[in-house]
Design a binder for these strands. Structure first.
Lengths: 201, 201
DNA sequence: TATATAGTAAAACGATCGTTACAAAACTAG
DNA sequence: CTAGTTTTGTAACGATCGTTTTACTATATA
């Protein structure tokens, strides 16, 4: 054994993730990453191999830290539409209450979809995986809210797409017009209420 | 007067637009732009001043050449939902039939929303203008399709947001999963049919 | 045809990019 | 305390970035 690493990989990855989230992969330079993480390139390359390696770690952290906790409420064992309303409600609150200068606007993976994913197969796979996971969670919550039998598969899938669409486009628009992003999320909530009139919230 | 310009600004801008559309602003290098347009940097800088000047011309061309013709069908004087069905139908067809290696996937402005727009005010203004224009066109078509009185303003705006959302997220997802992008557009069409059962298509 | 003006070609610019090499520093294990 | 191993700071790398300069060519005008 030799000298021990003085920094925690987790906090470094989170700092890098916020930078990538804010500026995108290409626009985030190594100088920026040094400043954001407080580490020299030496340590960054030693720990993560490359800029891309750090980015991949950031994306993984984003999925685990940001996405999955959000989707978890959709998997809660509710028997009405409250899980869906919780999901869109908390997303709207988070969008509304974040500091005006917060760098965590929109969604890292949505940004990847418009940027990297078009020409980078691994990134495309990650983004597609996120889309599938989001759809599955919404589908689960929609099934839980409905009285099982009286909704055909086709209409279920339409509803999944509508909600996934509102969710993603809200994250997209959040970078341009926060008020409208919140309105999109509220539209999703209203749509859920229209589908399930007897829901608790 | 001296020597005359041998190239047509319009075709050069279109070539540049397709490159920006495909790779994004930052990833499109001047070497790429030279190759795509067939011009040297000399001519490009003489005609457009800077890379950004060429990009702005490309965005303007994109709005006039791609966006506005698409939105035009929403402004046609129909009295049912056919304009909306035409819009989403033609978008779905265009997405479905384009060559697999086509560089014109998704939407240049949607890509800008996720990338440049977060840190560049002029770009953000352009993207926001696009969103407003799209919403206005959808609102116009929705009003034309409804029997005027029996739809409240609130539900109209919800419908505008739902359709705008499906439109934008389809363009976003087109870069990752073309099949799903088409499905989103078909979901929009089905939603329109559900709202206006007596529509012609 | 002479001249002025404007378009084009080529090269070099300084800056910044991600990456690597090297050596000093730090610390564990024996 | 020493030996051995790992982390870190510094500097330089070659490549590429957008931009500018310089010189040359082509052509409309007079």
């Amino acid at each position: 054994m030799g000298r021990l690493q003085t920094f925690d990989n987790g906090v470094v990855v989170q700092a890098a993730r916020d930078l990538f989230w804010d500026k995108g992969y290409e626009a985030a330079s190594l100088a920026d990453l040094e400043a954001a993480t407080g580490l020299g390139r030496s340590s960054l390359y030693h720990a993560f191999g490359s800029k891309r390696g750090l980015f991949d770690a950031a994306v993984t952290d984003y999925l685990e830290t940001v996405i999955r906790p959000r989707l978890a409420v959709l998997r809660a064992g509710t028997t009405d539409a409250s899980a869906l309303l919780d999901y869109f409600g908390s997303l709207a609150v988070a969008t509304a209450t974040q500091a005006p200068d917060s760098v965590q606007t929109g969604c890292l993976l949505v940004n990847c979809a418009a940027g990297l994913a078009a020409h980078d197969d691994p990134t495309r796979a990650v983004v597609e995986g996120y889309r599938i996971e989001l759809s599955a969670a919404l589908r689960h919550a929609l099934l839980a809210a409905s009285d099982a039998e009286h909704s055909a598969d086709a209409v279920l899938e339409e509803r999944v797409r509508t909600l996934a669409s509102l969710s993603m486009s809200a994250m997209l628009i959040a970078r341009v017009n926060r008020t409208e992003a919140i309105a999109l999320l509220n539209t999703a909530s209203n749509q859920v209420r229209a589908w399930f009139p007897g829901s608790s919230r």
